[in-house]
Amino acid sequence: SYQHTGQTADGGIDGTVIVNTRLKGSQEYCIQCKLYSKNIGVKPIREFLGTLSHYRNYHQGYFVTNANFSKAGKDFAADKAN
């Protein structure tokens, strides 16, 4: 199931998805969507991770964009769990 929560000043979460699996049961994921004309760097990814852990108490999420991620952004995200 999906719930759209995004709006201006939404605190960094545009929606949530609940996935039911046999092995893990019900898992909830936060979704952040960005429409950018340039590569996504470290700052937006860091902000999303901060939102996941501090403001929403979620541990997993997806960062979705029409753009690419910079090398620094990829390196930063690769070092993080979930």
Rank of each mutant, 00 (worst) to 15 (best):
K80T: 10
S26N: 10
Y62R: 06
K74P: 00
T21K: 08
Q7K: 14
K24V: 05
D75M: 06
H59S: 15
D75I: 05
A9T: 04
A78S: 15
Q27P: 00
Y29E: 02
Y55G: 03
Y29R: 10
Q3E: 07
L52K: 05
K38V: 09
F63P: 02
I18T: 14
V17S: 07
A67W: 06
N20T: 10
N39Q: 15
V19T: 09
Q32S: 10
D79T: 11
T16N: 05
G6K: 02
Q60G: 01
I45N: 02
Y36N: 11
S53N: 10
A72H: 09
S26I: 00
T8S: 15
L49Y: 14
T16I: 10
G25R: 00
Q60R: 13
A72L: 04
K80Y: 11
G15H: 00
V64M: 10
K74G: 06
K71R: 14
I13K: 04
G50E: 06
V19Q: 07
S37E: 11
G11H: 02
V17R: 08
G61C: 09
N82I: 01
I31K: 04
V17Y: 06
L49M: 14
G12W: 00
N57M: 07
H54A: 12
A81Y: 12
Q32G: 07
S70P: 06
Q27R: 13
Y2F: 10
P44C: 07
K80R: 15
N66W: 02
Q3N: 05
A81N: 15
G73S: 05
N39S: 15
G61Y: 06
T16G: 08
A77G: 01
G50A: 06
N20F: 07
S37H: 15
D10H: 02
V42M: 05
L23Y: 00
